[in-house]
Design a protein around this nucleic acid. Sequence first.
RNA 1: GGCCCCGUCGUCUAGAGGCCUAGGACACGGCCCUUUCAAGGCCGCGACACGGGUUCGAAUCCCGUCGGGGUCACCA
Length: 545
Amino acid sequence: MPDSTIVTRFAPSPTGYLHVGGARTALFSWLLARHMGGKFLLRIEDTDLARSTEQACTQLLEDLRWLGLHWDNPQLVYQSRRTEIYNKLIDELIARGQAYRAYETSEELDRQRQIASRSKRQYRYARPKLADEQIRQYEADGRPHVVRFAVPVKEYRFDDVVLGPNQGYGPGEAQDFVIRKSDGMPTYHFAVVVDDADMGVTHILRGQEHLLNTCNHIALQEALGYPRPTYGHLPIIMNLDGSKMSKRDRDKKIRHSVGLWLKQGRKVELLEEQAKLPQGRLAQWLAADTSQLDLPEQARVMEVIGLTRGDLPEILVHDFKENGYLPEVLLNFLSLLGWSPGGDRERMSMDEMVHLFAIDGIGKSNSKFARDKLLAFNTEACAAAPMSRLIPAFREYLSVNPESPLNGADDAQLQRVLKMNHGFHILREADEKSRFLFVADAEVEYQSDAIEKVLKKNEGQGLGALRDVRQALTGVETWNAAHLEQAVKGFCEQRQLGLGKVAQPIRVAVSGTTVSPPIFETLEFLGKTRTLARIERCLEECAKG
RNA sequence: GGCCCCGUCGUCUAGAGGCCUAGGACACGGCCCUUUCAAGGCCGCGACACGGGUUCGAAUCCCGUCGGGGUCACCA
């Protein structure tokens, strides 16, 4: 039994928070392992020294934990700590003539590729034929080199469990690719093959962008005497507009907004100063389209140019956490992007997904990420979830939204907020709609258009209603929603007024806006003293001007 | 551009030759409920990319066209 147990893995590179594409890959690998009773392993592919950061790694693990995709290897595998292992193998390959040192610089190669593309030729790396003496000279000069794998010229075909049999390419397509970079680190291709073999990985699910890489990996496996794992290449998740979804979308949006901001005649230096960035940082970022600001930098720049979190596209798992989606719902939605349990089945718990998951259910075509449906799923799930689920979820949401005054609420208060906001889409909605409940009476901000529309319009009709209903409220002995409703409705009847004509003025008076949770529950929550104090203050503010 | 992958409502998909006058979900439209924003209930609109075959019969098989995507790095 242990021999036939399947082992899957997720192998992200720590260059930032996890994005939804990566999350889906992780999910499918996790589901496959759980469904089959196998193992799901996590490995950190941090061979790109320039881009990998420890912070990104921490964030990645946090996201995975939040999603509930727990891995089975207590000891994480970091590729950057395994260079000795790779080097030993690479040296052996060199000794056997299956790999060789190559001395071209990146610039030289770039130039060759350019020449080829200008003359509309297909560029192919030609294995250099260096004389021994030449090599000795290069080495004596201390010329940097990479190690390339001497790919045997032949056909590389494999069966893909998602895309079908006979994938790959024919002879003559393969090129000698780099397996060790000039900085001494292995490339992805090499490390991935070695580690998957070392970790006993039997099933590899990954994005379709890796389809052709598989040929390189197979060639390496054959040279190293490794077994070939089962491959499945997942369709790609696209943006609604058809462009590829990537972490850069966020940066792109900020870049665009910064562009607009600067167009209004403002200086880069000013932005740098206000965003507390080192001199030249922005210019450097703006000059290179593919470079990105890190998260704290983004936050500071956004603040200066007036961009809020809600303006950014949700593409990182972290964005969904910040906006208050339930992780299990995100996962359910993600699972449906490229997979179907068949029939009409859509809403699934984690357990149900594990139970139903099957590779045959994975589709071949790319899908677009439309968050409307996710929103609907989340709404339903939140409406159906017990408080024992909602409160911890709300706490998690609040922990990444420290600016919310709801952070000061206790569980009982949170529960009341959740109940009175029943029907919300995301936790952010319940939060933002309820913040006025947790600020001091004097801090309530009155929106001028709300005051105008509800209180001052029609010769201050609303204002009059508010003044009068205050009396009725003052007389309420038992301050709860039921009694308040009775009192206010009685007042309305007496005055021949629709409830809306009275409820809206009260709403504006206590919340400062035209939108709040249901009014009687709101007033109950606020309590008599605070309700009356707010009405008082509102009346005063209006009297002022 | 070469090579490769894909193509069912706006979106995610069910569909493995007759069960399909193509099912579900989300979105959208209408009505109902209603103290705001929501949520909820009911009804509706809406697709087999196109053209050829194969077959008694095709969304399902084959070919071509078109469309979308991936990949051609010392990034993964």
